[in-house]
């Protein structure tokens, strides 16, 4: 039962309260770069969700079975980046072979996901302490955290793309065109998401 509560806490925490893009500022480059059209935003969001979940699972194992066991934690950054990059390559190959339809829709976004700081961010957060229980992340918690962070990213990206499609038609001052208006939009969204910080259910945290 407590496990279930922790999982709910982690999911809501990563999707809404500490949204990766709007509260933690991770993965801003794709958030601004790929959010001009709804269809590409969905593709990118799905690719990131996919990579994040699988990377969280693999890296938890590598971290515990190799790095912590051999006392080599200082190598984390290098090892994690290499794992994410090779994982993306591997997934590309596997998807091309077995699920060509999915590959067609996510294909071009997968390599972009490899250099996304949100993915490295979530696996580094997974090596720290779980804010809800105070202990280290277990395998299931790490996986859930990765998946929820991906869902949060997808949500923010899709909302942003919807808004920016409307903004195309709006009459905005010349100096605000492009990045500035996108940042204002993101700021307003972040303001809305700030409201979720009132959602606190941290019984395990105290």
């Amino acid at each position: 039962m407590t496990d279930f509560v922790t999982i709910v806490q982690i999911s809501i925490g990563a999707v809404l309260i500490q949204n990766f893009v709007l509260a933690r500022f991770l993965g801003l480059c794709p958030f601004l770069g790929v959010s001009k059209k709804l269809s590409s935003a969905t593709g990118m969001g799905m690719a990131v969700l996919f990579v994040m979940t699988i990377a969280s699972m693999c890296i938890w194992w590598v971290d515990h079975a190799i790095l912590i066991a051999m006392n080599e934690e200082f190598l984390r950054t290098i090892v994690f980046i290499l794992i994410i990059a090779s994982l993306v390559q591997l997934m590309e190959l596997v998807m091309q072979k077995f699920t060509p339809a999915l590959y067609e829709s996510l294909g071009i976004y997968l390599p972009l996901a490899a250099t996304n700081c949100a993915i490295l961010g979530v696996v580094i957060i997974n090596t720290g302490a779980n804010p809800f229980t105070g202990n280290e992340f277990t395998f299931i918690e790490a996986t859930v955290n990765g998946a929820a962070a991906g869902v949060g990213f997808l949500l923010a990206l899709v909302l942003m793309a919807g808004l920016r499609e409307r903004l195309e038609l709006a009459d905005i001052p010349k100096s605000m065109e492009g990045f500035p208006i996108a940042f204002i939009t993101a700021g307003l969204m972040a303001l809305a998401f700030l409201g979720f910080s009132g959602l606190s259910f941290f019984p395990g945290g105290h």
Binding site: M176, P180, F183, G187, A190, L194
Partner: peptide, 22 residues
């Protein structure tokens, strides 16, 4: 306080970039 929080960061960079554009 909002300028220390996440939304403020977005607003400040938006206005600084707009100023650069001008």
């Amino acid at each position: 306080t909002v300028f220390i929080l996440a939304p403020g960061g977005f607003f400040i960079i938006a206005f600084v970039m707009a100023l650069v554009n001008i």
